[in-house]
């Protein structure tokens, strides 16, 4: 149970750091910490085989989102 509290506190800390940071490139690593924390919290909240799929789907989805934002921020190699 204490693991869940540690994970939640780390999520709030990472979100505070991400909100204070101004530079987009340095903001993304803080958001990445929050994604790790939330993906861990999903599994810790509910012990069910599907929660592993939910954690993986959340993590891959948010990584894809960060990837898209970062590559557009870099100038966009793949012009749509």
């Amino acid at each position: 149970m204490i693991a869940l509290y540690i994970v939640a506190v780390i999520a709030v800390f990472a979100v505070c750091r991400a909100s204070i940071e101004k530079n987009t490139g340095r903001k993304l690593p803080y958001v990445n910490v929050m994604n790790f924390a939330i993906a861990g919290a999903i599994v810790l909240l509910l012990d069910h085989p599907l929660s592993l799929v939910a954690a993986a789907a959340y993590f891959v989805g948010s990584t894809l989102e960060a990837n898209a934002i970062a590559s557009t921020y870099a100038g966009g190699v793949r012009r749509g």
């Binding site: 999520a11 979100v15 991400a18 909100s19 987009t24 903001k27 993304l28 958001v31 929050m34 994604n35 939330i38 919290a41 999903i42 909240l45 959340y58 948010s62 989102e65 960060a66 934002i69 557009t72 921020y73």
Partner: peptide, 16 residues
Amino acid sequence: FNKLIAVGITFGGIVP
């Protein structure tokens, strides 16, 4: 970009 990142953070708080 920062607005989109913040919207992503909001979703991260809702999913638990």
